[in-house]
Amino acid sequence: MPGLQHAITIAAPPERVWEVLIDVERWPERIPTVDSVERLDDGPFTVGSSARLRQPKLPEAVWTVTELTRGMSYTWESKQAGALSVASHVVESHPDGARLTLAVSVSGPLSGLGWLFTKGLARRYVETEAASIKSVAETRG
């Protein structure tokens, strides 16, 4: 299963990093790799929550939360054209504040070919997303 992982240390409490991470509706103003996010349900962000994401150079995708441990991690999935994308977001305590780990993997009959063409873009996006969350969490923005 092709994929990648990126971790970053953030000089902010894990609770603050989590707060920024799950506020997906504000991602477009905070993260340059996200053009728009539309929550497809109301209420707290939890298992079963879905959002439509638009990102530059990628097809629009609906992501649905499949696992969530409040304050610590969530995983969401998106199914498109013969591939299942899975993205995980993990916040852990760290001596310097918090450690954020973002990971994405793809599976399915068309995943290998698709990954071949999108791996570089995916890596840049994951790194940019982690750096953006770090910046917001550290500045209280």
Score class of each variant (00 low, 15 high):
A11H: 13
A12I: 02
E15Q: 14
E19M: 08
V20M: 08
D23W: 01
V24H: 01
E25C: 06
W27A: 11
W27D: 12
P28A: 10
P28N: 10
R30T: 03
I31K: 00
E38S: 10
L40T: 04
D42A: 15
P44S: 15
T46E: 15
T46V: 13
V47I: 14
V47P: 08
G48W: 09
G48L: 10
G48I: 02
G48V: 06
L53V: 05
L53G: 01
Q55W: 03
K57W: 13
L58K: 09
A61S: 15
W63K: 01
W63Q: 07
T66P: 00
E67W: 03
T69Y: 01
T69A: 13
G71M: 09
G71V: 02
M72I: 12
S73F: 04
Y74T: 00
S78N: 09
Q80I: 12
Q80D: 11
A81E: 13
G82H: 09
G82K: 06
L84I: 12
V86I: 14
A87C: 10
V90F: 00
V91P: 04
E92V: 03
H94S: 14
H94N: 14
G97F: 01
G97S: 08
A98C: 09
L102C: 06
A103F: 01
A103L: 08
V104W: 07
S105K: 11
V106G: 10
L110Q: 10
S111Q: 07
G112A: 14
